[in-house]
Amino acid sequence: MSESSDQVTDNTTLVSGVAKRYAAALLELAEDGGATQQVERDLAAFDAMLAESADLVRLVRSPVFTADEQLAALDALLAKAGIAGLAANFVKLAAKNRRLFVLPDMIKAFRALLAEKRGEATAEVVSAAPLSDANVAALKEALAASTGKKINIAARVDPALIGGLIVKVGSRMVDTSLRTKLNSLKFAMKEVG
């Protein structure tokens, strides 16, 4: 392994550790203040804003902006979005501490910790076409039976799969996509030829 790939691994681990520490502290504060559901809603709203705005992503990720510039912009944005209390303070603290670039991972870590406390698991599902409500319900039921946990589905569409699904729950992954099957067949044919 090269030195640069070791550094990438170390940076990923560092970011992950920072995200988990911040998320754990926020969850503890939210539980102590009886504001867990409100913080969850506010973080989901902020995460949705990130998904919709390339400018906001640039503000969050770019080291070009000073902490004061990020704070000023976030202050106005949070007020406009109606995000206040612990979630707003959390976002501002991340900006003040120059950790705003880790915020998306902090939100994921918060959700994961909260789901773990609730006995839930999130299944990341990638399909070639959007899943129907009946498909989602059947998938939740099957995954709940195999994991023993309440399952939340985080679905996305990737037409390149051609057909089938890729389902990931925790560290377990099942790939039934047609693309993977075709690639396996192509590889097997190369081995034979």
Rank of each mutant, 00 (worst) to 15 (best):
D6Q: 14
D10S: 08
T12H: 02
T13F: 14
V15G: 00
S16G: 14
G17Q: 10
K20C: 00
K20A: 08
R21I: 00
A23Y: 07
A23P: 11
A30S: 12
D32S: 09
T36P: 04
L43K: 06
F46T: 03
A48M: 00
L56Q: 00
R58V: 00
R61N: 12
R61Q: 10
A67W: 11
A67M: 13
A73W: 05
D75T: 12
D75F: 02
L77D: 01
L78R: 07
L78W: 13
A79L: 13
A81I: 04
A81T: 03
A84V: 14
A84E: 15
G85Q: 02
G85R: 00
N89W: 03
V91I: 15
V91R: 02
K92P: 03
L93E: 05
L93R: 06
A94S: 12
L100F: 07
I107H: 14
I107F: 14
A109K: 10
A112P: 03
K117D: 08
A121G: 08
V126E: 11
S127K: 02
A129Q: 10
A129R: 07
P130Y: 07
L131Q: 03
N135M: 07
N135P: 00
A138W: 02
E141D: 10
A142K: 15
L143C: 07
L143W: 12
L143P: 12
T147V: 01
T147R: 01
I151T: 07
R156S: 15
V157K: 00
P159D: 06
I166F: 06
V167T: 05
V174Y: 09
V174P: 06
T180Q: 14
N183L: 12
M189T: 05
K190Y: 08
K190W: 05
G193C: 00
